[in-house]
Write a protein that binds this DNA or RNA. Structure first.
Lengths: 221, 221
DNA sequence: AGCAAAACTTGCGTGCACGCAAGTTTGCGT
DNA sequence: ACGCAAACTTGCGTGCACGCAAGTTTTGCT
């Protein structure tokens, strides 16, 4: 199912998409993001500017996609491939942390560039939402496909937690709250991810142990 | 703290914001959303078009804001005002459901309009993210302000769950998943919200009880 | 094979978001 | 009371997102 034969059409689309995001990143690195016009990206990828916009709805999205492109599916795969003995919570946390722990050297300067420019930062942080669909599938698979709804909510919550972690990580941290000096000055990304996901563990555990029946359980008014 | 004296400046800003969103909604209802130019909204609110864009970053946002404007703060307030005997989970769920259960008659046709147009639907659904900041404060308050991080993650997760619920509610429901015919055909919004929030209850409970069971992880920065 | 529908690309036009650099208003310290 | 600094508004210019309606390629059906 993950390896569909894929029609010719679909493969062309993926090729175009990849060409676009790679061109976007390459040009952004070469010239600086502000000196890259959409037309340049389109030209470099060999399509019309209009077509570019059929694939990405903003320049930032294309650049960021070069870095985040395959994380979504990798996370889902990692959750699915996790030893069955371990809990769902561990599977999810490890999958996320692993996939966000960048083994990729090329991504270094790209991430530096991204975290520098506000517009790119935002696009990068927002890209966390893209893990929701594949993660929904992976979680639903583990819970027994009956409960799609719960899986969706959990996946979206995980994405939200990742969003929070990325936000904290990519921020110079505005000093607008002088209340307590005990704010963590943004540690390493893996640590931030773990601590952001920690509060969701009980929800993941509960979903796993509780999975027998009715989706809408107790309603106390 | 909720009733700041508020400087003159701040009040003017809020007035302008309100004028803009009300103008946007009124014009959209009168003429249909496609026949409303940004310039029209700005003119109706008595500001320049450029200023309009200092308040809202898209036309859809302004229209939707007329409906969603105060929900954020009301939800936070409702969580804070909840009887201390009840659990955090109940407080949050009830606050959300109550505030999304629309007692407002005026909003009826507005919501009809919004759910009709795809662009507006998306803006409406995305507006759920706006509850995160005030909800973070409210939850942090209940948890004892020490753990801001946890509160933030929980609030973001709640927002994500609301997002899922709104999505399901506002969708004609694409028939792209022919798997099981047992998908709920989108019930009433309160029911959708309750069932979307249900999976998060364990997480909220655990956070409240200070020491969750045994999340084997012991992060200490 | 051959053809018709469906999917994708492309050019064009329109309205828009947003950076920038004045000009104007509010707030605050002395 | 005065004036300076910070915040906000506004006009302008630029690049862009996206609807629309051809034109082109892929696919599925007979």
């Amino acid at each position: 199912m993950t390896t569909e034969p894929a029609g010719l059409r679909e493969r062309k689309k993926q090729a175009t998409r990849q060409a676009l995001r790679e061109a976007a990143l390459r040009l952004a690195l070469e010239r600086g993001p502000d000196n890259v016009r959409v037309d340049d990206i389109a030209e470099a990828a060999g399509v019309s500017p209009r077509t570019y916009n059929n694939y990405f709805s903003s320049r930032e999205q294309a650049i960021v996609a070069a870095v985040t492109a395959e994380r979504e599916s990798r996370i889902a795969a990692a959750v699915g491939a996790h030893p069955v003995g371990t809990g769902l919570a561990d599977a999810v946390v490890e999958a996320v942390v692993t996939q966000y722990t960048d083994p990729d050297e090329d991504a270094r300067d790209a991430l530096l560039l991204i975290t520098t420019r506000p517009a790119l930062r935002e696009a990068f942080v927002d890209s966390a939402a893209a893990i929701t669909p594949p993660l929904t599938a992976a979680i639903a698979d583990r819970l027994g496909a009956a409960d799609d709804h719960t899986a969706h909510v959990l996946a979206a919550s995980v994405a939200a937690a990742v969003h929070v972690a990325l936000e904290r990580w990519a921020r110079p941290v505005g000093a607008s709250s002088p209340a307590s000096g005990l704010v963590v000055p943004s540690g390493s990304l893996p640590d931030l991810l773990r601590s952001a996901l920690a509060p969701l563990r009980p929800a993941l555990d509960a979903a796993e142990n509780h999975r027998p029946q009715a989706p809408e359980e107790d309603r106390r008014t």
